[in-house]
């Protein structure tokens, strides 16, 4: 049995992340991690008619760059696992159709990058695949019109609201030799603490992150200093503060080794993004760009990526339901 503790999967064959690629918008490039991305779209519509098509094209671009960087052809990729935030994951379906690669469509809201890495790691580790791509994307404009208001609508954002990242990230998980391996994954449970405010997703998702991270440490029976970096996906300022405080109470005080992609990608004050970035593309582009390069350069050796998702829909919000949260953890280590 390749499972330890309650819900952590051990990847005995150490599938490697041999390459990553990221595509972001101009606002992200202007943020704190500008320059760490592979490609920047200078126009939000990316030459397309709709925001949705722009998102699809962005995801397609990320996979194309990934294949080029890894020097692989479409036929060498056995599976692709991906998703996005749009209804029925249309961003991914329309973006990936042309590649002709068998496809797992995933919905984990903003946790999708970790979920797709989990699927990719298991297919490779289990010997079902030589190369699997994990990919996801989000786009501020397509999310805004689906989940909130038309872009030109004059609304005021609350201090806890977050700014959907326009970006896509892709990673190639392979059975080839490499230095950066996925060693363990901890798929998370759905945790709902009753937060109903769609403008406060950080607080809605934090309990799921806390649950998954503490379970991961218990399952692996490791010390709080084991990882050089513990990363959450898009909890933002409030979610980060809650997670940090509550994990410290459980003996997991990571101090400044715990960061949140949503707070890293933007400059919270000068970029007017309130609590920080959010969306599938947030964790995906920060991981594929900044964090992967830290691992590659050996500046960090062990990192726990915990992408977080708010599993609500516009229908559930209108019906007054609370926001269920989810978080999946992926342990990535230099071997």
């Amino acid at each position: 049995m390749n499972r330890i503790g309650k819900q952590t999967i051990v990847l005995k064959n150490l599938p490697k992340i041999i390459q990553t690629a990221s595509v972001v918008g101009q606002k992200e490039q202007d943020g704190k991690l500008g320059g760490t991305f592979d490609y920047v779209i200078d126009d939000g519509r990316f030459g397309e008619k709709s925001w949705e098509k722009a998102e699809s094209k962005m995801q397609k671009k990320a996979v194309e760059i990934l294949l080029k960087k890894a020097d692989k052809k479409n036929e060498e990729i056995d599976f692709i696992a991906g998703g996005d935030l749009l209804n029925q994951c249309m961003g991914t379906s329309f973006g990936l159709a042309d590649f002709n690669i068998p496809f797992f469509g995933l919905y984990g809201a903003c946790s999708t990058m970790a979920e797709s890495l989990c699927i990719a790691a298991m297919t490779v580790d289990g010997g079902y695949s030589k190369n699997t791509i994990a990919v996801t994307s989000s786009h501020f404009c397509s999310s805004e019109r689906q989940f909130r208001f038309p872009l030109e609508y004059g609304g005021q954002r609350t201090p806890t609201s977050q700014w959907t990242v326009t970006g896509s990230g892709a990673a190639l998980v392979s059975d080839e030799d490499g230095q950066i391996a996925i060693t363990h994954i901890t798929p998370g449970k759905i945790v709902d603490m009753g937060i109903k405010d769609a403008n406060n997703m950080g607080a809605a998702m934090a309990p799921a992150a806390i649950d998954t991270i503490s379970t991961h440490f218990k399952d692996r029976n490791i010390d709080k200093d084991y990882y050089d970096l513990v990363v959450t996906g898009d909890l933002g300022k409030l979610g980060h503060a809650i997670t940090k405080e509550q994990l410290a109470k459980e003996g997991l005080d990571f101090k400044n080794k715990y960061i949140d992609c949503g707070m890293e990608i933007f400059d919270l004050e000068s970029q007017d993004v309130h609590a920080g970035g959010s969306g599938c593309g947030c964790c995906a582009s920060v991981f594929a760009g900044h964090i992967y390069s830290l691992l590659k350069k050996g500046e960090i050796n062990r990192v726990l990526i915990t992408a977080t998702g708010a599993l609500m829909s516009t229908t559930s919000s209108f019906q007054g339901e609370s926001i269920p949260g989810i978080a999946h953890a992926v342990a990535i280590e230099r071997v």
Binding site: G25, D43, G44, R45, F140, C141, E144, R145, P150, L151, E152
Partner: peptide, 11 residues
């Protein structure tokens, strides 16, 4: 008329 002559912009 606004819909005819304009479209939403990136923010």
């Amino acid at each position: 008329l606004a819909a005819l002559f304009s479209k939403s912009s990136e923010k």
